[in-house]
């Protein structure tokens, strides 16, 4: 193993970190909104909403992310009407296509996590909230959601880390994220072991930092352990 090649690759790889972080952060943000709406739709009394949300979750959890990215990036450009529409301004960019695929993908997984969290809230707590006159929205905001997110946080944390890993697929549609940079370097230097090891280390640092951050939040949300 040639250590100097690994060190030489680091500046380029760190250049890819910016794009990876940007993709992951935005995907998690958009994914959160999608997930919360989907979870509520799946638990709602309106059959059409329930049905739509279930179909969305089933499709996006049942197909590979790579297929989803390729469908959005290469697939949609097959149609002239897509290329001529306003949406093309966004769909033209590999960044937005990847972001869309990542957000829809994590949205589907996270929706299930949130649904589980919401279902875990004891029924009598909700009844008590309603009994003292809280509106459904207030009850959700002040009683259900805080309890649900605490329950869901470990699984949601896992999903966040999976998103860092999933973002590596951006490299398949010309984006220069960490993996994209690594592939180019490996092809240019013919030293795949060194380059991919260096890339793996960069990812490990990223996921480790993220795990620590999630643990920090878990501790903060865990009122039973909070010193007062």
């Amino acid at each position: 193993m040639n250590i100097s090649v690994m060190i030489g690759a680091l500046p380029d790889l760190l250049g890819g970190v910016a794009l990876t972080t940007e993709l992951v952060a935005l995907a998690l943000l958009v994914g959160f909104v999608i997930a919360l709406s989907t979870a509520l739709a799946r638990l709602s009394g309106v059959a059409v909403l329930r049905w739509l949300a279930t179909a969305y979750v089933f499709t996006f959890r049942g197909t590979p992310l790579l297929v989803q990215i390729f469908l959005i990036y290469y697939g949609l450009s097959q149609f002239a009407f897509v290329r001529d529409s306003v949406a093309w301004v966004v769909l033209k960019q590999p960044f937005w296509c990847t972001l869309m695929a990542l957000a829809l993908n994590t949205g589907a997984y996270t929706a299930e996590v949130f649904r589980g969290g919401i279902l875990s809230v004891p029924h009598n707590q909700i009844e008590a909230a309603r009994a003292i006159g809280m509106s459904p929205v207030t009850a959700f905001r002040r009683i259900i959601w805080p309890l649900a997110i605490r329950q869901a946080l470990p699984a949601y944390g896992n999903e966040m880390i999976l998103m860092v890993k999933a973002s590596s697929l951006a490299s398949t549609v010309t984006l220069m994220d960490i993996t994209g940079v690594a592939q180019t370097l490996a092809a240019d230097t013919y030293m795949p072991i060194e380059i991919f090891t260096a890339a793996a280390l960069v990812y490990l640092c990223l996921t480790y930092a993220m795990t620590q951050a999630i643990h920090f939040f878990e501790r903060r949300l865990d009122v039973t352990r909070r010193r007062s």
């Binding site: 290469y74 450009s77 290329r83 093309w88 033209k92 590999p94 398949t172 010309t174 220069m176 994209g180 180019t184």
Partner: peptide, 18 residues
């Protein structure tokens, strides 16, 4: 510069107007 894994994909994007 945008780097592609194959010429096929590169040409798909040329045709798509990217």
């Amino acid at each position: 510069i945008k780097l592609y894994d194959t010429v096929d994909n590169q040409n798909l994007d040329l045709k798509a107007g990217r």
